[in-house]
Structures are given as structure tokens and as C-alpha cells.
Design a protein around this nucleic acid. Structure first.
Lengths: 348, 348
DNA sequence: ACGATCTGTACCAGATGCGAC
DNA sequence: AGTCGCATCTGGTACAGATCG
């Protein structure tokens, strides 16, 4: 008697009774199957409306083994890029009448990843989307027998999964090209962590663009995306003293660029007079840094939508050509400029 | 024959057969019910492991009418605070063996909110979590017959729903107190949008703290959380000319503080020498702004966990005392300092 | 006779193949 | 042939009854 009065929801049988048909005729109407007389369909639909009937997804999922749910796995913290992509993906999915079940994890340990996948699988998700920065995340999932398609954000394009991506490589080349075009010849790279596919692609682009121009690549510094790591390397670089062995830095993301600039200016260098800095991502804050940061804008919104688009194509079993990767766009602001006058031979 | 070989998952009957018991006994061990001989339990567990059996949530949900799923609604863009909270909430939920079905929307129009709620309800979620900045979001949901508990992040505490919050009011007072303690008497406020509950609470805190100290409150500027709006107001303020009518600004969030500082310094003012600025949130970038931003840190991680904690309590039907709101913590960096020398009467 | 242990069967709310009009 | 209904199935849980020491 405690909760017996719990809103008893109408079932397909209630609808059938009210409409004066059998329950499977109702089922036909629900699923838009043929062979239902228009008049009958009308009656059923009226009954459905009258009872405010909604089919039970549980019962439906049980028998169809399909849930109209997509599993979404994300790894990493609340960064602007992934967060945007998630939001837009989610909205697109809802518009396509898919529910999305989310499993996020701060760290991407293989074990937790695997258990997240299993959790989703157990929910009968029809597909899995993986938005993970770490290469290891893809590897960890590789081994699992999924049974459903998986779409990953994978700029390396070598995961074997269906993938969507932003062309990090071309973005990086464009960034370096911008610097080189300004006259810089000694362009360092402050890279993201080695386990990040995006970071690797950007390193590759940086290296190739330098090579294509006959410029030498100094050993890249590898940070962890955080402003703190940018600050650390900036401080280390500044210790070189008054004359630096470079005139420009291509930072792997805007946060590291921020930390870097902060360290540099803290040591008496001026950006961009003494050194130019270009970032990557174009987070909303970048335009208001001091100086406003030149950076490569990534269209995360479209990325999110593209993920769903790809997913739908895969689910529809189309031999999806795949969405071509977008190319980041150069946003020129005030942190880049021509290099300082050719430095005179460094005295003792 | 196309997909008949689709990984046939083991059912409770398969386990029963392998263990030599009835499926019902298997159900008992699954649900930790008594009256199962230890030896039998062992056999069943071995069979479960051998078949890698996992109960079907669909079947279970069908009969129990419980889905072990929580619906999560978020509104707004990919901001640091909400994103963090979502991530931590999600992880906590998974640890509590709850799935979370997400419905995010960039804008919080009543219609889309309502349809999101219905979508989740149809999925038989056991509860709904609402992480929305806009007051209107709560109002829109008020009218809906939910049938399940709803926990909202609501710093106003007047929504009628179960709520979790960070004490924006006390945070704001602490921010103003910091400024006042430094000797400032003319403290302006750059507020968040009027439809944000947090923004309103901060305005209230700012006003009350000023009043408590016998200081006058100049009309607050209301921005939209974006650095651009901060920049806009900063520019406007700077137009006042060499002598400003204030010595400190309490910004509603770090982004607006960033834009504000950028505008001020662009017009020849120095922070904190000429004007002190304090932000709110402590986003990861704040420590590397120029100058590093003094701000009020909000513990979004704990907020996310508290949401789940509260939800669990509500679901357990406890007369939840509720988690007491956390108080933001003052983080003193370099954007605040004592006010400039008492300004001499302004000449013509 | 009786409590611990286990089994049989009904049931949740739909989808679907086959047969009947 | 076009409409519609009956029976059966999905994979679990719940409750009553059977078995055994």
C-alpha cells in the first residue's frame, strides 16, 4: 500500500483495449508498419493520445536488442575542446532521437576504460563514441570485443576504428608557416604530452614544415597541456639569458602558450618583440591575453556534429566515405611579429 | 545469415544450466539474497565467470521498473565550472553503479528543456540532475509532472527541488571583504547576467558586504560571463579618463576579469597599482594571467560528487539534511593590492 | 513438523512469425 | 492481397510450492 498508487503507466494492452484492436496492431501502428487500415490506425492513435501512452524502452530494448542509445566515453579533464565537442555531439544526437549514455573519466587507465565500455555495452548501446586524447585509450579499446561500431576522434587516423578528426598536422604546418612567413628561422615547439595523438601530429607538422623550408628543428619541449608546464619551460628558456637561441615558439595549445608568455615576460622578454608565440585551439580567453594570442582555431562544434554524422552513416551501414577532416584556421592576433633584427654574433 | 553470428550473450539460463541449478537460484546469487548454500553460490559464481555473464539491464529494468540510470541535464556552453562538475558527477555515479544519460543544450529554452526532460523520463531514469545556470531553467522544469526526484544545482536554494550549491553569497562577501581589507572603499562589481542565479547571489553578497562596511555601491555593470563583455566594460570605465571613480573591481568570473584587465591595461592603467581586480572561479588559466589573478576558488569537483551524494540520499528516501553548501576560497595572487594613495582632489 | 534451500511458473511490456479471415 | 489476431519470445524478478535433512 506504500507505493501502489504510483502512476500506473498505460501499456500497449490498454491502448489495444481502448482502440478495440489487438495489442500487436498497436505495435504495428507504433512502428509504422504497413497493412493497417487508415481508419484503424486513426483509432489506435487516438487511444494512444488519450492514454498518453509511451512505449517502454526497456521492454522494447529487451526484445529488439536495440536501445536507441549511444554510449559516449570521454577521458581527460574539463578542457574547452572536448567539452565543446561533447555538447554539440549530444545536442545533435538528441535531434536524431538518440539518447546518449555518458561515461567520463578523468584519467584514461585501460582498466577503467574497459569497464566503462562494458558498462555501456551492458546497456545495449548501439554504438560507442570515444573522445579521448590519449593514444592509449584507443589501444585499450582495441582489444575488446565490442559487437557495436565505435567512432573515435582520432587525428592519427590509424586506429582501425571509424574516426572523425581535425587535421592537426595541417594545422601545425600552417602555424609554423605563419611564423616562417614572418621571417622566423629558429622556431621551437612546445609540444603536448607524448601519449596524445594530437600532440604527435602537431610535432610532425611542425617538423615537416621546418624541413620543407630548410630550417632546423631544435629538440621540442614536451609539456602536459597545462599553463603550468608552459610556464616551466618558459622559465627554463628564459634562463638562457639575454640572447635566446630561437625567435619564435609554436605552442601545442593556448594554455601552454599562456604559461610560456607569462614566464617570458616575467623575465624581461617582450612578446612579440623578442619572441613570437603562436598557440593552438583558440579558447575564448585567448583574444584577451596580454598580448592577444595568435593561434590556430579548431572548430570543435562541427567536430561534435561530425561525430554524430559519421555514426549515423555507420549505423546505416553505408560505406561511409567519412567526413573529411577539418583544417584549423589561423587567427592572427598580437603575439606574433617579425623576428628581432638579425642578432649580432653573440658576445661572451 | 548476415548477422546471426552476432556474439550471442550468455543469459541467466545458460548460467543455470552450467551450474546445474535453476535460473532462479542464479538470480538469488546475483542479488545477494539469502538462502543459498555457500557451495551452490560458488558453483554459480564460477559459471558466471566462465560464461562472462552479465545480466541484461533491459530485462531487469522491465520487471523492476527501475533503470539504475540517472538523467543529467545541462545548459550552457563548455564552461570550466559546469564541465568539471559534470565530469566528477559522472564518475561518482558510475562508481555507485548508476548509468547517466545526458541531455545537454547550449541554450536553455523552456521548450527544449521540457523535451529533454521527457526524453529522459521515457528512458525510465530514476532521477534527474539539473545543472543549469539560468533561473529560467528551474522554472521551466517546475511545471512538469516528473514522477522522479530532481536534484538541481541551485545557489538560490529557493527552487523547491532538492539542491546542492556552492555558497555564492558568502564567496562574494569574502571577495569584497578582501578588497575592503586592503583599504578599498570604492569597489565596483562586474556582474554576470541577470538570469543567472549565481550572478544574483554574488551581486547580493557584494552589496551586503559593502553595506556592512558602510561603503556605497555604485551601479553594478552586468556582463554575460564572457571575456568580451569584461573587455567592453573595462573600455567604458577607462574612458572616464585619468581618474577613475573606483579603485577596485569585483568581477563575477575570471573570464570577465580577464577582459576587464585587458581593457584597463590597454588604456594605460596598471593592475593592481591603479585598480585592483578580483575574479571568481579560479579557472586553471587564472594563475598565469598578467597579472596573476586574485580570485575565489570554487570546488567544482566536490560539487559534482555532492550532487550524487544528495541524489543517493534522496533515492534512499532519507530525510536528507542535504549537503551544506561549500564556501569558495580566497586565492590571493597579484591582481589585488592596496588602493593608490588617496587621490588628490581632481583638477580640471 | 519445520526452516533452509532450491525449483516451477507467472509476469514485466513490448516485437515478430505465422496463420486466419 | 490486405488486415488483423494468436502464440511465442526476449531475460530477468517475485512468489508460491516442493524437497530434504
Amino acid at each position: 500500500m506504500t507505493d501502489d498508487y504510483k502512476a500506473r503507466v498505460a501499456t500497449i494492452f490498454d491502448v489495444a483495449r481502448l482502440a478495440g484492436v489487438s495489442h500487436q496492431t498497436v505495435s504495428r501502428v507504433l512502428n509504422d508498419l504497413p497493412n493497417v487500415r487508415p481508419a484503424t490506425r486513426q483509432r489506435v492513435e487516438k487511444a494512444i493520445a488519450a492514454l498518453n501512452y509511451r512505449p517502454s524502452p526497456a521492454a522494447r530494448a529487451l526484445v529488439t536488442r536495440r536501445s536507441r542509445t549511444i554510449g559516449l566515453i570521454t577521458t581527460g579533464g574539463p578542457d574547452y575542446g572536448p567539452s565543446s565537442a561533447v555538447l554539440h555531439f549530444n545536442e545533435a544526437a538528441r535531434n536524431a532521437r538518440y539518447a546518449v549514455s555518458m561515461a567520463s573519466m578523468l584519467k584514461s587507465e585501460p582498466d577503467s576504460l574497459r569497464s566503462a565500455v562494458e558498462l555501456l555495452l551492458r546497456q545495449n548501446v548501439e554504438a560507442i563514441v570515444l573522445i579521448a586524447a590519449h593514444r592509449g585509450a584507443l589501444d585499450a579499446v582495441q582489444g575488446i570485443e565490442l559487437g557495436v561500431p565505435l567512432v573515435a576522434v582520432d587525428s592519427s587516423g590509424r586506429s582501425g576504428f571509424h574516426s572523425v578528426a581535425i587535421d592537426q598536422y595541417r594545422g601545425a604546418r600552417a602555424a609554423v608557416a605563419h611564423l616562417a612567413g614572418l621571417g622566423h628561422t629558429r622556431i621551437r615547439h612546445l609540444a603536448g604530452p607524448a601519449d596524445s595523438m594530437d600532440a604527435l601530429e602537431r610535432v610532425r607538422g611542425w617538423r615537416d614544415e621546418l624541413a620543407a623550408r630548410g630550417l632546423v628543428a631544435l629538440e621540442p619541449m614536451v609539456g602536459d597541456w597545462s599553463p603550468a608546464s608552459g610556464f616551466g619551460f618558459g622559465t627554463a628558456l628564459a634562463q638562457q639569458g639575454a640572447s635566446l637561441d630561437f625567435t619564435a615558439v609554436f605552442a601545442g595549445n593556448d594554455q601552454m602558450a599562456l604559461g610560456l608568455v607569462h614566464a617570458l615576460t616575467g623575465h624581461g622578454f617582450t612578446v612579440p618583440r623578442d619572441v613570437s608565440v603562436i598557440g593552438f585551439d583558440d579558447i575564448p580567453e585567448s583574444a584577451y591575453f596580454a598580448p592577444p594570442l595568435t593561434t590556430m582555431r579548431q572548430d570543435f562544434d562541427s567536430l561534435g556534429r561530425d561525430i554524430l554524422f559519421t555514426l549515423l552513416a555507420v549505423l546505416a551501414d553505408e560505406d561511409s566515405p567519412g567526413v573529411p577532416p577539418m583544417v584549423p584556421e589561423l587567427v592572427i592576433r598580437s603575439s606574433t611579429a617579425p623576428p628581432p633584427r638579425p642578432s649580432l654574433p653573440t658576445g661572451g
